[in-house]
Simulated scan of single mutants.
Amino acid sequence: MTTAFLFPGQGSQAVGMGKSLAETYPVARAVFDEVDEALSQKLSAVMWDGPLETLTLTANAQPALLAVSLAVIRVLEAEAGLDLKRDAAFVAGHSLGEYAALAAAGTFGIADAARLLRIRGDSMQQAVPPGEGAMAALLGADLDLARAIAADAAQGAVCEVANDNGGGQVVLSGAKAAIDRAIVLAGERGVRRAMLLPVSAPFHCSMMLPAAEAMRAALGKVAMLAPVVPVMANVGAAPLVEPAAIRDSLVAQVTGTVRWRECVEAMTAAGVTRFVEVGSGKVLTGLVKRIATGATPISVGTADDIAGYKP
């Protein structure tokens, strides 16, 4: 059975995530302590005790989700004998999850990855003034229809495809007025449901260009190694192993479309039959079920999940 390990993105955060891991496994606790130290913040306390509003802040949610995913990986290595180089064909992460995937595969250290995601979260939040941008999910739309709706709704403003998640779920991002127009057009064109998302900025569109430049500068200062297994990159939906190409891809990802459907399809075409979602929640597990029928998706995010994990 050929396996890929998947790492979730923003929206999978929940108060209490990772707490059972830290209480059960010293190697997990060490990950949370390292992230806290890297950020000079007791982020683990926010993760375990809330409030949810503080955890959901982009600058907190991104390194917090990274911490949980890497804690799970470290426990699987210690308790289940996981060796990504031996046991995985690919790693892949959804948006910020790509940083967790790369850290798990050895491209970044934990502290560097946490600091990069704090910079990423802050710069994405600051790129667009509050209220000027928005995102909307189109449910029951394929990519071509979503692109056509975005083009017609733009009317000179930014309205772009942010995520092609698969299973008929496409997310648009851009100027608030354009996104509002897109929601109306979606209803007129037979999209099953179109709804605004509760986000604080229009991620993965050209309005994020200032954040992309901030990440270019930040990534240029961090040592990067080749991952021990290829990362299936969001923006190219193709495997990468060269640090320079990975750096460029991570910069492009800030303003580019997360091509998640194509990433899963490419891994399936390469022979992957099992997808292991590592970290908080089961969002990617659900998406894989809709994209790769016949594959085996599982999620590993708690101490109980780890106890039942089979290599």
Rank of each mutant, 00 (worst) to 15 (best):
F5N: 12
G9T: 03
A14D: 10
A14R: 15
K19H: 13
Y25R: 12
P26M: 05
E34N: 06
S40W: 06
L52D: 15
L55M: 07
L57N: 07
A61E: 11
A61R: 06
Q62V: 05
A64F: 00
I73F: 08
E77F: 00
G81M: 08
L82G: 09
A89Y: 07
G97T: 01
E98H: 03
I110D: 10
D112S: 10
L116F: 05
I119K: 02
R120I: 00
G121N: 02
S123M: 08
P129L: 03
A134I: 01
A136H: 13
A137P: 09
G140I: 12
A141T: 02
R147C: 00
A151W: 05
A151E: 15
D152L: 08
E160A: 08
V161L: 13
N163G: 01
N163Y: 02
N163T: 01
G168F: 02
Q169L: 13
A177E: 15
M195D: 09
H204T: 01
C205N: 13
M208W: 01
L209D: 14
L209S: 14
A211D: 06
V222E: 14
V229N: 01
V229S: 01
M232N: 11
G236D: 14
V251S: 10
Q253F: 12
W260Q: 07
R261D: 14
A270S: 15
G286V: 06
A295D: 12
A303T: 00
D304E: 15
I306M: 04
